[in-house]
Each structure stands twice: as C-alpha cells, then as structure tokens.
Design a protein around this nucleic acid. Structure first.
Lengths: 351, 351
DNA sequence: ATGAAAGCGCTAACAC
DNA sequence: GTGTTAGCGCTTTCAT
C-alpha cells in the first residue's frame, strides 16, 4: 500500500523466491524507512501456530526448578520456539486451571509442567485438563498412561546412595529427609529403607527438613540427639547436607571417619563444601531439554501415533570426601552399572 | 453462529453487563459443550495489546539471574501480565538484535534485560534499539539518560565489606575478584581499593576467579602463595568464598581469628557455610519486581512524561562468623547507616 | 438487549 | 512476478 504494492511485502518478508530483486529492494527500503515491523501476532492468528510453548513453573527460587527452566528455554531457542513462562505460587488445583486456560487461549503448541515436586494433587490437574489440548509433559510426576512424564527414579538413586554408605562398612545409617508431603522425599526415604532392609540392618533415626540448609542444621541436631552413635547419614538434599556439615564441623565430628554423609541433587557447589560432599546428581537441565524434545516429537507425529512416553533419566553418584570410594571397587554386577556409574570429582583436600 | 447468536458471545466472554441472563446461560452452555476457547491471539491483534512483557536473560544457570527472573515472573503474574522468556547464550550484539526484533514482532508491551552482568557491549545494544519501541529496563547496567536501569552500587557495597574487615582491625586485606571483564567485578575491586586507600593501607594481593566455587579454590591458593600473612579477605561472590573456605579449613587456617572473610551476593546457604559467611546481600528478586513496576508505570504514563529512572537498590551486610561484628558498634555517622545497616544472622556455632 | 458491518495485520489460493 | 480475494477470530461502532 505504501510505496508500491500490497502483500508482495509478505513474500519479501518470508524470503520467498518469486520476487524480482528490484521489487525486493524497493520493499526493503520502504520497510527500513518506516521502521515497519511485521506482526507475529497476526501471523500466529492466520497460521494457527504460535511457535510458543507454555511452561508452568513453581518455586523457581529453588535451584532445581531454575535449572530445569533454563534447560527448557535453551532447547526451545534451539528449535525456533519461545516460551511463555507462568510462575505459580503453588500447584494447588484452583490455581492451575486458569493458567492452563490462559496458555490454551494463547494457542501454545505444548505445555510443560515444571514444579519442584509433584504430589498427589497432580492427578487432579491431569483430570481437569481439557480433552482438546496440545501435548503436555509433566516433569517429576508419577508415570501415567495418558501423559508423558520425565523424571528420575528417586527410590533407586536413594538406594544407590545408601549402598555407598553400606559399602563403606557403615551400619547405623540415619536419614535426613525432605518434607514427607513431597513424593520425592518419600521415594528417597523408601530407597534408604529398602537398601537397609536388603542389607539386613535396622534403619537409624529419621528426621524431615524442608529442603533448605537451615532446616538441615536443626534436623541433624535432632538426629544426633536421637542417636549420637550413627556412622552414616543419607540426606535428601545437598542444601540440607550443608547444614548437617556445619553442625558436624562445629561439634568436631570427623567426616568421613566418624560419620559418612551422602547428599542428593548434585549442586555444583557440593564439591567445595567442607569436606566435599558425596551426592547423587540429577540431570535437571537435561530434563528440561528432553521435555521440549518430547513436545516437538508429539507435534510432528500428531497423527494418532503413540506419543506418550515415560522417561526416567539416570542419576550419577558423585564421590566426594564426605563419603569416599570404598576400598573394594563398585560391584561389577550392578545392573545399573552404566547409568549409575560413580563419578569421582577432584575431592579437594588442600594442605 | 452455533446455537443462537454471533458475537453476543463476545459480550458474554467479557462479562459485559448488557446481556440478558437467559442468553448468557445459553451461550455459556454452548461454550462448555463445544469446549470452545477464545483466542487470545485474535484478541491481541484487534486490541493491540499483548499483555506480555519480554524478558531477555542470559546465564539463568547463575543463581542471581534465576532469582531475578523469578522476581520478574512473580510481579508480572500479580499485574495480569505474562512473560515471554528468551534465554540467550551470550549478550554479544549480533545475538541480541534478532531477539529484540522477535519480541517487538510479538508486540510485547515492555522489555527487560536480565543478564548476569552488563559490560560495555550494552552500549551497542542500546544504540541498536529501534526508536519506536515499548519501554525497556536494563538490569545491572550503567546508568544512561535514555533508559531506565536498576542495579546496586557495587563499589559502595564493596567498600562497606572492606570497611567491615578494617573495623575488625585487619590490615593485610586481599581480594578474590570476579572476572575483571565484568563491570561488576571491577566495581567491587575498586570499592576494595578505595576503602583501603581511605584507611591509608596498601592493598593485599588480588587474584580473579570466574565466579564459580572451584575457581575460588585455586584463586585463594594463589593469594596465599603471594602473601601467606594476610588477615582479611574480600571475595567477589559467595560461591568463590565457599571455595576459599574449603581451602582455609583444609589448611587449618583459623577463621575468623587468623583470617576474616567477607563474601558478596547473599546466598541463602551462606549462613550454613563452615563457618557461616559474612556477606553483602543483593536484592535480586526485588530488582526483577522493580523492573516490572518501572515498565508498568512507563506504560501508564505514555504521554511524553519522563519515565526514565535510574535506581540503585540498597544492599545489606549480613554478618556471619567468618567476619563477626567488631567490638565497637557500627559507626553512627555512616551516611548509609539505614540502607546499609548490618543484619546479624543466627551465626550458628554448634557444640 | 442483540445483530450487522468493518477491520486488526497477516497469509493462502487463485488469478493475471 | 505480482495483484486480488478471502478469511484467521476476535472487538469495535452503529443499527435495530
């Protein structure tokens, strides 16, 4: 309309080949001059694809969630998608439904749930999801036949952690748990119990914290009060383990000789704790990336093909000084030997 | 069109008053039955407001950026806006321009830059920003007359940290700096130098790390090698301070008696370090929230009113055991006494 | 209280 | 190669 034509402009913008170089230059000049910017909104409307995926996150203040959202954002950018981020105060159902509606209204092409945890409430969310919807991936949720889920096997990983303590000859092994309303906290506790039961040992005391490092301090003190003679401790998060380390150091408890500690999460900083922390690393960013891949695959295959997958990503045992490698090497018969192979960091012990 | 009418539906959806209750119920029933969902895309198109704000972030893997994005998302939700999150690999100019174009094409109503740092390159970004654009806020950037910026006064905060060490009677004060390509790292170094110069002292050795805790280990070892007799250390990030603590603990350096340490950032975990870390807290989430407020205010005032503000948020000295309160209380004449008032955490020292 | 008409800014399907 | 027509799904404005 401006200088010369009407929607030849469209062809220019979309870099179609069927435009004469001359016209093209003309149009481009006009665009430049008028500071014209094509509306992606209108384009989304007519094409019925927004090139957006919706991310429903809660607790981004937690290291894990932030890491996962990062993985999602990265993978989206790499695939030409963008993310609409909805941060929720909580995952209670009444909160979630309007958010999903919002995302649907914006015609996102997929939705990822990235919570710090998934409890039973997720069932309700799943029930309330409208039938007509883009693909959805739940992170850290119980497997279902209806939705793709991506997570780790918390129970096995916790068993692996506990077995590491057992391999060090520890027999009185306590657990500093996460809040037991959280499924992940319960799964980790169950893994701890199972490993002890397999070894024919009684569980040591268990106290729950709230994932944060201050709660590690108080919970560990309660554990010590319950049984000062424990020689092994499995902690549900690295942050709580940090609190336990502070108490142990303050009381002159020698780690790992007197008490060996294994954490959970794989914070990058764990290697610089005093002493460096043995921990289970979760592939948090990978989870996010994989969730995007799942979505894109489902989008591609939108024929009735089966696009529901349940993925459990492998975890790693990162060995630090708080619970070093046992003298006899990891058993070669370990069924998960590959995925769960221990990784030894440069457990730094200066001086 | 369906059951009864055409765009009376619109009135129903927008909860307009001028619809008979009867029709309303009819329409609502039809909506429910057909699983109809209004298109926010079409609405954005016709109303010319997307209710979206664009966030350009880089380095969300860093605690600080994640925290800030969290604050942004929170504040947006609270105001009925949503965020389109673009995560960048880096803030090099060629990368950024297309991202801004993308956001503009999506008709975001504001843009926030949330990088881990802002170097000189930001100038180029600012220069390349098109003239016709929604309001933009830069986080952590140098003040400019053209754009709103929100950050902290790194230099003053670093002076405050160093003065705390001086108040403890320390005279050989070293600095474990961040990477000096970063403006923030340089500002903190300058604050350290200024405080020492004001006190008439020579600066101790300085070595730069990369913000991460492993680099704290090696950099601190270099500092010790350069001058083993230092009695104070100001560290540019809490994570690097964690590395320094590990080395100090490993070598039997008594903290704070032999060496007092002050960090920077205010990680929540710093209180559980061994020993608990004295540090400068930055209001990271607040920065994000404030950025959103800035944007919304600018939106409201879009008359030629002056909407460019330069905000420097106050920081806090959090006193832990690594550099305790000096015997004589903080000088009452401190000009920043209020905003910079030290906060004493329960520096935990068990047993 | 409701319907009809026009248009937001683009692209798809055809003509020319 | 380029212009024309139509329509994406809404919200206006004006009639009724």
């Amino acid at each position: 309309m401006t200088g010369v034509s009407t929607q030849t402009v469209s062809r220019v913008l979309n870099k179609r080949p069927d435009v004469s170089p001359q016209t093209r230059r003309l149009v481009e000049a006009a665009i430049e001059e008028h500071g014209f910017r094509p509306s992606a909104v209108a384009r989304s409307l007519v094409q019925r694809r927004s090139q957006m995926i919706g991310v429903i996150a809660a607790g981004m203040k937690y290291f894990g969630v932030a890491q996962t959202v990062n993985g999602i954002a990265e993978a989206c950018e790499a695939s030409g998608y963008s993310v609409i981020l909805k941060e929720l105060g909580s995952f209670d159902v009444p909160d979630i439904v309007p958010v999903v509606e919002f995302l649907l209204a914006h015609r996102v092409e997929g939705i990822i749930f990235a919570p710090p945890q998934m409890g039973a409430n997720i069932r309700h969310v799943q029930d309330q999801l409208p039938a007509a919807r883009p693909p959805v991936v739940f992170l850290k949720a119980d497997p279902t036949p209806e939705f793709s889920t991506i997570g780790i096997d918390n129970r096995s990983a916790a068993m692996r952690a506990t077995e590491h303590l057992l391999a060090l000859g520890r027999t009185r092994i306590a657990h500093l748990a996460g809040p037991l309303e959280w499924r992940e906290a319960r799964d980790r506790r169950d893994g701890w119990l199972a490993a002890l039961s397999d070894a024919g040992l009684e569980p040591g005391p268990m106290v729950a914290g709230d994932w944060g490092s201050p709660s590690g301090v108080t919970a560990f003190e309660e554990i010590l009060a319950a049984d000062p003679r424990i020689d092994g401790l499995f902690v549900g998060s690295d942050q709580m383990a940090l609190g336990a380390l502070q108490v142990a150091n303050g009381r002159g408890i020698r780690i790992p000789d007197q008490l060996a500690i294994v954490g959970f999460d794989g914070l990058p900083e764990a290697a610089q704790f005093t002493p460096s922390l043995t921990t289970i690393r979760q592939p948090l960013a990978e989870m996010g990336r994989l969730a995007v891949r799942e979505l894109l695959m489902a989008l591609k295959a939108d024929l009735g093909v089966d696009t529901v997958h349940t993925v459990e990503l492998p975890t790693e045992l990162i060995v630090g000084d708080s619970a070093p490698m046992p003298p006899e090497r990891a058993r070669a018969t370990d069924p998960d030997a590959e995925s769960m192979a221990p990784v030894v960091t440069g457990g730094q012990r200066p001086g």
